[in-house]
């Protein structure tokens, strides 16, 4: 339709991605870190959709479907890791995972 400028969509995707990145860097609860990763992946999908609607091609939505698949697999593995971590350390604080001393 051309009514919504493509820059605004991309700016929104950038804002959401930055917020997710801030969440990943600042939070110490690993469940919040995983949620922030979801926000970042979602912002990536939003950028693809914006580009796809700008050129009116279906490829943007196909990329979004693939990102959705990736997010589902990532969240399944990540939550399995969280459960395992909680069993071993009885906490979800990622600061306790500092046994690897360089």
């Amino acid at each position: 339709m051309g009514a919504i400028p493509v820059e605004h969509g991309l700016i929104l995707a950038g804002i959401l991605f930055s917020l997710g990145l801030i969440g990943v860097l600042t939070r110490r609860n690993i469940v919040f870190v995983l949620m922030s990763l979801e926000v970042m992946l979602n912002a990536c999908g939003l950028a693809f959709i914006v580009a796809g609607s700008r050129w009116e091609q279906a490829d943007g939505q196909i990329m979004f479907v693939l990102i959705l698949t990736l997010a589902a697999a990532e969240v399944a593995v990540g939550l399995g890791l969280i459960i395992q971590m909680y069993r071993r350390f009885q906490t979800v604080d990622i600061n306790v995972l500092s046994e690897l001393k360089g």
């Binding site: 969509g9 979602n42 939003l46 959709i49 009116e56 939505q61 979004f64 479907v65 959705l68 589902a72």
Partner: peptide, 21 residues
């Protein structure tokens, strides 16, 4: 974000966002 997808003319992505995500 699903509403945003709809306004951008991507109804399939909007539905998938609401259902799957």
């Amino acid at each position: 974000v699903a509403v945003i997808f709809y306004t951008l003319g991507a109804p399939l992505a909007a539905m998938l966002e609401a259902i799957v995500y």
